[in-house]
Each structure stands twice: as structure tokens, then as C-alpha cells.
Design a protein around this nucleic acid. Sequence first.
DNA 1: GAGTGGTCTAGACCACGAG
DNA 2: TCGTGGTCTAGACCACTCC
Lengths: 251, 251
Amino acid sequence: MDKLQNGGSNMPLYQDIANHIGETIRQGKYTAGDRLPDQKKLAEQFKTSRMTIQKALNILNAAGMTYSVQGSGTYVKHNIDEMSKLNLRVDQYVGTSSLLGGKAKIVSQVIKFKVDFPTKDEQERLHLDPGDPVYHIIRLRNVDGAPFALEHTTMPVGVIPGINDAVLHKSIYGYIRTNLKKVIGAAYREISADKPDHYDKEYLHCDDTTPVLQTFQVVYLEDGTPFEYSATRRRYDSGSVTVLVPRRPHM
Amino acid sequence: MDKLQNGGSNMPLYQDIANHIGETIRQGKYTAGDRLPDQKKLAEQFKTSRMTIQKALNILNAAGMTYSVQGSGTYVKHNIDEMSKLNLRVDQYVGTSSLLGGKAKIVSQVIKFKVDFPTKDEQERLHLDPGDPVYHIIRLRNVDGAPFALEHTTMPVGVIPGINDAVLHKSIYGYIRTNLKKVIGAAYREISADKPDHYDKEYLHCDDTTPVLQTFQVVYLEDGTPFEYSATRRRYDSGSVTVLVPRRPHM
DNA sequence: GAGTGGTCTAGACCACGAG
DNA sequence: TCGTGGTCTAGACCACTCC
């Protein structure tokens, strides 16, 4: 019947089932507002237990494709198309390199690169002692030949050692994952508008009436160690920052 | 023992256990980097099964307090303090009324309130036909007597009926939850910088060099029906928008 | 190999929604 | 009252790290 042709996948069963049901929905077998078969039937259909079906449905619910109502059933939402597009955006790694679909050509120009002791503010944000050195980096990001953003980055040398010019021209995040084999965790962002400073005027061609969109962020490793404190500044007409605010969770 | 004195709580057991462990961590019994007792021990300690303990730990992991490594253990993160603060911000309902801790006094001044047919853009965003009427609302939000934000709101009359002047001066969201008994779901936001328009100049006292921070959002009900399309405009010096980007989830 | 978390089962009872 | 999803159990096996 509806057996999974999973084959050599090493994915958990509930993940496979979630993908399978999600695919079924996207194919239009169930449309907006429809009720899915109940958990007992799904368990029989996929020859598994109800707990496993529930894990699968939880994934679909969290992904915004369906929602469950106790005593009633599990239903297909009315805006899957948009939500799945939005989830893609949220599901991307932090860092400018992935803001666009990865298709544009990004060239980084290093404007400043030196090592200092951290300021008071940086000590607090990055959990550092006054004697722990940090990199201070300013890079101009050019997209398809045009200046796009200015990135002011501070990183602790002790957490992310071995940064050099070659790394700066490629991807710092790739270096952290591949060479340092560290797992990147959550990030905290603060988005604000600002008047242009002299860097913005020089490199982004701003004048006094050109608003700047600033995304300031602290990024943490999986274990909670902060490793990046940065501000990305862009002209107001170069796009926006998108956020998906999920439905209020439990805790 | 470590028995829970839950008493008359109607919270699920795993939620109680998560709260309990979280409280223990906050009290400093476990500090940054410490490993928690393994799941088997926790199950014995709380007189429950391992599956229930896992659900509790999943909550703590999702909340950013701990993280689990297969084959190794569950550990306390290094930045609980910040993360819990950030989670509070993310955990709040959408709408200006909760941007500040709820302590400031907010007074709404209705600048415009009428019913129209939707524009092309609004039809798309709110899934409407050209003949479905919408409210067009502009409100000035004053915080502690000073103008703080301009909210341009569009809502479908068919989804949110019965809006009137009394509702506008209080909370639209409260009206939706309490009177219409509808459940609010996820929201999509787009944050950008902009030059001031004539409303901003008149009501927020902007001049030509004053950047404006605009938060544009579409809010959905639990079943995925979009019910609000709005733009909130503030002066660049009135604060920022904060976002917590969680660790990349499964789907 | 011992110890850990991740997955999965085959049941059970409870809470809630709808007719 | 019946059907639904939510919770919970007491085990089991597997994948992974290295205590």
C-alpha cells in the first residue's frame, strides 16, 4: 500500500514519514482545510506505532504545514506555499553569504583587519576578560560588482584561532565548520535604522539623507560560547530583513 | 528524593520536569558546561519513564538552556542568562502593545479608519478576492505621552468582523482572542529602513535626514488564514527590533 | 566494552471536540 | 457517547563517544 521506499536512507523513520506526508500534501492530495487520516490509521498505513506518527506530525506542525486540535483532528493549513518559502529563508545559516539564494557572486574587500584588546562592550557581549585578544575586521561585501554591505566584525582569537587574509576573502563560517569542526548554534539579532557614518558615505555611497539598515548580531556555538559580534550595514534601498515568528511555544 | 510537589497543576508531567530542571539550573546547582545526570537516572529520580524525561530535555534544549550529544550526555550551555532574556522577548505576542514590558502606558490615537476594497497587493497578501472588503486603519501609538510609532493596518472584514472605535483604542489582539475566540498563529515580518513620508513628518516629528525603521508584517490565524497586513513605522532613535534565530531545525 | 542519547513499540488512560 | 489527539509506560535495539 503506502509502504515507504526509503531504501538506504539513514534518516529516522518519523522524519521519513513527515517528508512523505508533506510531499503528499504538496502534491495536492490534501488541500487547505482538509483533515488528515487519524493517527491510528496513519500508524497502520505506515506499519508503525502511534508515537512515531506523532513525532512525524509534530514536525509538520512545527514546519507550519498542518496543525492539530485535540478531540478533532490534524488539518492542512491555508498558507503552506508561503510558509514553506518563508521557512527556507529562516532555515538558512547566518552570515551575508547566504542572504541571497547563493547564486549571486560575492566578493569581499578587506578594509581593516587587526588584533586588539576588547572594549568594555565587547567583553560583555563575548564573555571575555580585558586581556583576551580579539580580531577587528571590516569588510565590504560586493554583490555582482556593486557594493552591498559593510560588515564590522569582532571575534575572540581564543575561540576562533587562525583567521587570516585567505579566510576573510572566502567564508569565515565555512572555516569554522570545516577546519575548526565546531557546531554553530543560535544567534541573537538586533535590527535598527541609523544615519550614515563616514564608512557608509565612502563605501556605500550614502549622503546625509540616506537611511542605513543595520543588523547587529551575536552568534553562539552549540555549547553557548559567543564567537561573533558584528554589525552589517546596508543602504535602505538594498532590501530588508525577513523573520518568521513561530507560534508561541511551550516554555 | 526529588519528588515533584506539583499538586493541582494541570500541566503535563514533562513540562513540570522541564520547569523543575530549569529552575535547578538557574539556582546554580549546575553551572555552565556541567553534564546533567543521564536520562536513566533522571527517570528514576522523577519516578517516570525515559520517554517523558526526553520530552522534558527537548524543551530545555529548544529553550537554549542545554544541549544533548549522542553518546556523551546533556550539558548546560554557557549563556543561559542571555538566552532566557532573549527567549522572553521572542515569547511575546505580536503587536506594539507588548514591545515594551507592558509597563509603559500606551495611548492610541486613531488617524484613519475606513472600509475599502483591497489593493492588488493586499489581495495577494491576505488571500482575498477583489470584492472582499478590508479595514484600513492608521493609528498613532503614544508611549508615556510621546509619539512612538505609526501603525498602518489592513484587515479583512470577513475574517475579523465587528471592529469599531472602542476596539481600536484598546487592543485588536485582545478582541480577537477574547470576543472572536480565534487562535493566533505564526507571523511573517520584514524589517527595513526608509525615508520619512508625510505622516512620519507630521506625527513622528521627522525631518528629511531622520531615518525610519519599518516593520512590516503578515499575521496568520492557527489554521493559516492571514488576518493582518500592517506596517509599523518608528524613528531610528526609538529603539530596535530583536530576533532570536534558533539553531537550524530538522525539516 | 561501557555508558550515553536517539529511536521505536504496543499497548494504556486522559482531555477535549462534536454530534 | 464516540472519535480524536495528548500523555505516559516499560521495555527494546541502535548509534555514538570515550565519561
